[in-house]
Amino acid sequence: MKLLIIEDEKDLSDSIRQYLALEQYTCEVAYEFESALDKICLNEYACIILDITLPNGSGLEILKELKRQGKEDGVLIVSARNSPDDKIVGLNLGADDYLSKPFHLPELGARVAAIIRRKSFSGQNQIVIDHLTLDIRDKTLKNNEEAVPLTRKEYELLLYFVSNKNRVVTKEAIVTHLWGDDVDMADNYDFIYSHIKNLRRKLAEAGCPEYIKAVYGMGYKFSIPS
């Protein structure tokens, strides 16, 4: 699966590339407008991570060019401008999603995964991972064909973990993903602990191995035990 990261900040671009590479994506990078244009013309990508403010041009122009050429590449806009207009314009031009800086890398991972799912498995709404089957449309989970009843939040949580398989996601990133980041909602993140505890208990009761592990007291990691 090939991704293109169009981002002029080399440090950020590197982080994104490294993080997504853990998920076996092949990442190409472009640091400025012209090389980005060249790349989108020559190749097709499962998803393009597009920064709006670029040297010598706007990311929105690249998006327009993509659509003009009738390309189907998924596009995730990342922007530091965080203006509602940018978001609306970007989505109207055909971008699939919008993420404002500074974002959590797992959030980016989940969004990219969601875009790729929508683009590549049209009609097929299932994620199969080890013995687990997540139904995207019905938002349900099956373990070896047996339904595991999950609450909405538990399902979203599991999907988030699965989208960031083998990577540590922090509590803060989870809160932002599940509850939004509009406000300083809580002075501690204990409340997500109960959701995670319930999810782990339900998975254990359904006879699953320990998929979700706590890491350094700051986050969790979903992985398939070997």
Partner: peptide
């Protein structure tokens, strides 16, 4: 915004490392 994004992304990467000590954590 941008430096914050970089710092946060680097931290997100560092915690992926295996074998961090407790004090590092």
């Amino acid at each position: 915004q941008t430096p914050l994004a970089i710092i946060r992304s680097k931290l997100d990467l560092v915690i992926q490392e295996e074998g961090l000590t407790d004090s590092q954590g």
